[in-house]
Design a protein around this nucleic acid. Sequence first.
DNA 1: CGACTATTTGAAGGGACTCAAGGCGTGTGG
DNA 2: CCACACGCCTTGAGTCCCTTCAAATAGTCG
Lengths: 208, 208
Amino acid sequence: MMSNNLQFDRAIGMPARAGEILFLRGEPCEHLFEVRRGVARAVATSYEGDRQVLAFFFPGDVFGLPLADEHRFSAEAVTDIIHTKYSSTGWQAQLAQTCQQEKSILNAVWQEEKAFIARGLVLGRVTALARLSAFLIALTHRLPSPEGLCALELPQTDIASYLATSPETVCRNLRHLRELKVIAMPRRDRFAVLHPGRLEMLAEGIHN
Amino acid sequence: MMSNNLQFDRAIGMPARAGEILFLRGEPCEHLFEVRRGVARAVATSYEGDRQVLAFFFPGDVFGLPLADEHRFSAEAVTDIIHTKYSSTGWQAQLAQTCQQEKSILNAVWQEEKAFIARGLVLGRVTALARLSAFLIALTHRLPSPEGLCALELPQTDIASYLATSPETVCRNLRHLRELKVIAMPRRDRFAVLHPGRLEMLAEGIHN
DNA sequence: CGACTATTTGAAGGGACTCAAGGCGTGTGG
DNA sequence: CCACACGCCTTGAGTCCCTTCAAATAGTCG
């Protein structure tokens, strides 16, 4: 389920360090990327230098699809990552051959689009607590949670940038969720959802 | 430039009344839609009934692409519209034949994805005034503006739902922009940008 | 160990949501 | 033609959340 069956299984995993730039907005679409390990982010930067994190990409996610000639957002490694680069021309050739029988290619396109739709849905919530709750729920649906513990290997500054809020508010609301016993964070980079139903209600803006 | 060259030029324009549902989330992707006249919207509804407008589609826009088996959002007419329906199977067949030579199909995919990215970028702004300003700028870039007058045929409730704010705030900020002489609204459903540079600064959160 | 970054906490101020009510426009029926 | 109803836009007042600024602490890397 994590795999997208792009039939590039022999491709080599390449490492990148945390913070490393994978591609910049405006560069030609020559490769598409699949995350093997770690987390990557799509970033948009305004002329004034304000940064927004548009999406996070986790293991199995494919991004940088050559839908246009140029990449429309920049991509960077959040953590140290292992990723795979595929030639866009090869991708297009395969697209032509298999898109009728196989749904996997269209699925890759859909997965990328879904990531951006998801951010809009999260940002549409009224309060920062609702946005954070919705984000944590999305994480639990996307990431494996061995023993109920989900990885949160994202700097709070990135989470804040993704949720269109300030790092202070992210920190305060995480503490608030811990105090409500809705989540637990045994370590800084791990969290467990203790009360899923309550978390969903908070995501809907219902304070109970 | 408005046209996407999908080679369905003989397709018939069909009318729909304002508010009419074009398709619902979860329905199978059997058709894709092109707006000929008027405005359509992509809508997501939560279980509690909260509605979010995810995107607006203007003449020339194609949406409802069969990236997955089911539509992932609902679509409705905002105004009375003229639209065209294309068979998804035909779309996929054409995709297989032409995606290597022609970029138009991938472009249609990109245009839809761009609409969702755009909403995220707008919602990432800090204040409601910045979000509204960014939205108006996007409208001027997307819509024709004969004599500098751009159509604003959207109910303020829809604009509010798109910008994740309240109708009252939309109204107040429109008035604020008029008082600043940054925009003019000779009619309720028309606006002209009097001071583009100032509007862009407001969109960036710079109050001058 | 020291420099740097990320996280945490506090205080103050402002913006936006909510509730409420009034005005405007349109369409319908008497 | 007018009265009325309905929906949408507009405006006001109060409350609360969040941003911002500031500072202290914790964590990380050399």
